[in-house]
């Protein structure tokens, strides 16, 4: 990691140059404004010091036009800044299609990441270069916040609710990963490193099971281990529970006549509190898995359910996108 003294952070994601350009513009504007104001104050303070011979005739007490100019001017400037900042933010909050999905669980005081093939790591995150990466995050206890300064991205990690963050790394190297939301005694120890690797190196790293952490669930599908398939047949035949093929990201009709989009939060809720939303045509038979599956296992189950959906090529574009 580059630990030399510097005044600006490294740029290691596609967001970084955009954010820095906006930052530079803001620096320019606020630098000119503050120097301008300070300059005028100092100039007046000297020129019109008590007992100076400056001309003080015709002192205005107010000037409507001048007042309006410093209302309208800052208004226009701030609207430019608002639109610029909002456009970038919008992109930061909407992951591109086909991003590599990595799940993340935060807890006091460590970060746990799991890659699509099941390889897990703690306080380190390996990602491929030049490939969009989306992180699905949840906390096991208090609020944390995943922050990678070199990528200019940050998102709070909440208990009981998924949040996501995405980026595309643009420079090979090792970068800081911090918890930015105060989370208790060892908050400043809840740190790690992001390793940006060439895509081929990333693939090697993923398949290097010898040195890697053992996979969750010992390699088999958690879906089968927990016997989800007893009720949720994966073949499409009629059974006690709704089929989970093609369900992720789709609209699901409910017993009460409402509809719900089967996003990550809905899938998680259906595992922990199955009775909360019953799918139309089914009964509340499923037992709760609360306390029986960890947050990591729920994330694993969700990614397995998503994998079942991705088998179906007819899936309409854009439905996976969720806010």
């Amino acid at each position: 990691m580059d630990t030399s003294f510097r005044l600006l952070p490294e740029q290691a994601s596609t967001f970084a140059p955009d954010v820095d350009l906006l930052f530079a513009f803001l620096m320019l504007v606020s630098g000119l404004l503050s120097l301008g104001i300070a300059g005028v104050i100092v100039w007046f303070a000297i020129k019109y010091r008590r007992n100076s011979a400056a001309d003080r005739r015709a002192t205005p007490s107010h000037m409507l036009l001048l007042e309006l100019s410093w209302i309208v001017g800052p208004f226009i400037l701030s609207m430019i800044l608002f639109v610029w900042g909002a456009k970038l933010f919008f992109a930061q909050r909407h992951p591109v299609e086909g991003a590599l999905e990595i799940s993340c669980v935060g807890r006091q005081w460590m970060w746990k990441f799991q890659h699509p093939n099941g390889r897990a790591e703690i306080n380190a995150l390996h990602v491929p270069l030049n490939q969009p990466v989306k992180i699905n995050m949840i906390s096991e206890d208090v609020i944390h916040s995943l922050y990678v300064p070199a990528f200019r991205v940050k998102q709070d990690v909440l208990p009981g609710r998924y949040s996501t963050l995405w980026f595309q790394a643009s420079k090979v190297g090792r970068y800081h990963l911090f918890c930015a939301e105060y989370c208790g005694a060892k908050h400043s120890g809840m740190i790690g490193e992001v390793h940006v690797l060439e895509p081929t190196r990333y693939q090697e790293w993923l398949s290097d099971v010898v040195t890697g952490t053992p996979q969750m669930g010992g390699g088999g599908r958690l879906f089968d281990q927990l016997r989800c398939n007893t009720c949720h047949m994966t073949g499409g035949e009629v059974s006690r529970g709704p089929s989970l093929l093609n369900v992720a990201g789709r609209r699901v009709p409910l017993q009460n006549g409402q509809q719900v989009v089967a996003d990550d939060d809905y899938l998680r809720e259906s595992i922990l509190r199955p009775a909360a939303k019953i799918v139309a045509g089914y009964h509340a038979l499923m037992p709760s898995f609360e306390g029986q599956v960890s947050e990591e296992q729920i994330l694993q189950l969700i990614s397995e359910i998503k994998a079942m959906s991705q088998l179906d090529a007819k899936k309409p574009e854009g439905e996976l996108k969720k806010e």
């Binding site: 955009d18 954010v19 900042g85």
Partner: peptide, 8 residues
């Protein structure tokens, strides 16, 4: 106040 800067 500027969203993208605040994220960082």
């Amino acid at each position: 106040a500027c969203l993208a800067i605040d994220v960082h």
